[in-house]
């Protein structure tokens, strides 16, 4: 789905300091990964404060043991983006559970050297997603719950 660049500029008008860079990256990455889209929502920080931030929300295709899975993720962009890394989460649906590990905590927060060593302009969303796809292909961050019931997960739009 093509992202309307004007709509995106408008979304980012609230406080994003490097809007042009951010618009360009999001346009680029959503062209490559069509199941991700920009959404404005309230992000809750560790101290309880909230701020309206842009997130890239949706799924990325991950190949694991020969099958492709659409892993649900949410990447929050701070208003200092791209000079700070996005805050990244895996977003399990009701039929999934988080598999904690080296790269994933119990809240679904994603930890990667790529994020830790983030430096604009060498680091960007496209590179990050490529790294995620490789890492998740080795260690999936979510698994399906062991149940025979089939239900479509509630997926937030």
């Amino acid at each position: 789905m093509a992202i309307n660049e004007n709509a995106l500029r408008k979304m980012l008008s609230k406080g994003y300091k490097y809007r042009d860079l951010t618009v360009r990256e999001i346009t680029n990455v959503t062209t490559q990964y069509k199941d991700l889209r920009p959404v404005m929502d309230n992000y809750v920080f560790n101290d309880g404060s909230t701020k309206e931030l842009l997130s890239l929300t949706g799924t990325v295709p991950v190949t694991y043991r020969g099958n492709i899975y659409n892993i649900p993720i949410c990447l929050w962009l701070l208003d200092s983006y791209p000079y700070n890394p996005p805050i990244c989460f895996v977003k399990p649906t009701s039929t999934m559970m988080i598999k904690t590990g080296k790269h994933i905590d119990a809240n679904g927060k994603i930890y990667l050297p790529y994020l830790h060593e983030w430096k604009h302009p060498q680091s960007d969303l496209f590179g990050l997603i490529q790294v995620m796809i490789v890492v998740f292909g080795e260690e999936p961050p979510v698994f399906s719950r062991p149940t025979t019931q089939t239900q479509y997960p509630a997926f937030q739009t």
């Binding site: 399906s144 719950r145 062991p146 997926f155 739009t157």
Partner: peptide, 14 residues
């Protein structure tokens, strides 16, 4: 403005 793939995950190991 929906579309988007249905999220999926590998089956749990047994």
């Amino acid at each position: 403005l929906n579309g988007g793939a249905v999220p999926s995950a590998p089956p749990t190991y047994t």
